[in-house]
Design a protein around this nucleic acid. Structure first.
Length: 259
DNA sequence: ATGGTGGGCTACCCA
């Protein structure tokens, strides 16, 4: 079972890119972020025509997440638990069954800039809520994959120019510590577990020629529970998509599980 | 140090 995460930065603006990627790459499961669409306006028909089941958790104008799956999809949960009054559409879960069931969560973690400030406070409180949910998922002892745009640069080697990010909410010590607190529950950063060293990025800003200069950061992650990590067969970043026509500022990151 | 780009949407917000 191959599971990919892709922040598409607007499903309507990116529909040709999305359909082209799904057709060429054929992930079994695709977790999308920043669909920037309400559920009723999501272009599900064209995606279903490619053989995918579609579950969305959208809102008007920004945020929004979705799960696309060629495999049976059950027990969908929309919204990160524990957020009284939080209307942001940033979390969706479902169980995907290949040769065995895998609990999959797609997430769009708050950006948090400017920091400090209320947006940074929201990011950190959202991460604490995520930690609680991550602990509850671990307790099931099922294979769990939590994948998406984490808006966290875990280590200096995950940025081409780490010195440019020191005051940014994506790299501040509080954000990285909160990310580590989730990892330390028992999750594995799938890409980093298999590919050591610098130079591996999933996001390049549209501005200032970031792509042409390879001024990237690695902020799209797939975290695996121990039961999922035991099934990990391969991982990769589809960086070539960033150089294609009308790209998202993110590219897909994927894992192959023996499941 | 500043400004640079892009999506959603109609006055600016978000990244």
């Amino acid at each position: 079972m191959r599971i990919a995460t892709f922040n598409i930065n607007g499903v309507k603006a990116r529909i040709d890119t999305l359909l082209g990627w799904l057709s060429a790459s054929r992930p079994d499961v695709a977790l999308l972020q920043e669909i920037k669409s309400v559920d009723e306006a999501f272009p599900r028909g064209a995606i279903e025509d490619l053989g995918y089941r579609v579950e969305t958790h959208g809102q008007k104008g920004f945020n929004g997440v979705a799960i696309l799956s060629r495999l049976p999809l059950t027990d969908v949960l929309r919204g990160l638990p524990g957020g009284e009054g939080d209307e942001h559409a940033r979390w969706i879960e479902a169980t995907v069954t290949g040769t065995r069931p895998v609990r999959v969560a797609g997430l769009y973690l708050p950006n948090g800039n400017p920091a400090p400030g209320p947006k940074f406070d929201y990011k950190l409180s959202w991460m604490e809520r995520m930690r609680m949910r991550a602990a509850a998922l671990l307790a099931t002892e099922d294979p769990v994959v939590m994948a998406g745009d984490y808006n966290v640069i875990p280590q200096a080697e995950d940025a081409a120019r780490p010195e440019a990010w020191v005051t940014d909410a994506l790299y501040r010590p509080e954000s990285r510590a909160a990310f580590r607190r989730i990892l330390h529950l028992g999750y594995t950063d799938a890409f980093r577990a298999r590919v050591p060293g610098p130079g591996h990025y999933s996001f390049w800003d549209y501005q200032a020629g970031a792509w042409e200069r390879n001024n990237g950061i690695r902020i799209d992650h797939l975290l695996l529970s121990p039961q999922a990590a035991d099934l990990l067969a391969d991982t990769g970043i589809e960086r070539a998509l960033r150089g294609q026509e009308k790209p998202s500022d993110h590219v897909p990151v994927w894992v192959e599980l023996d499941a």
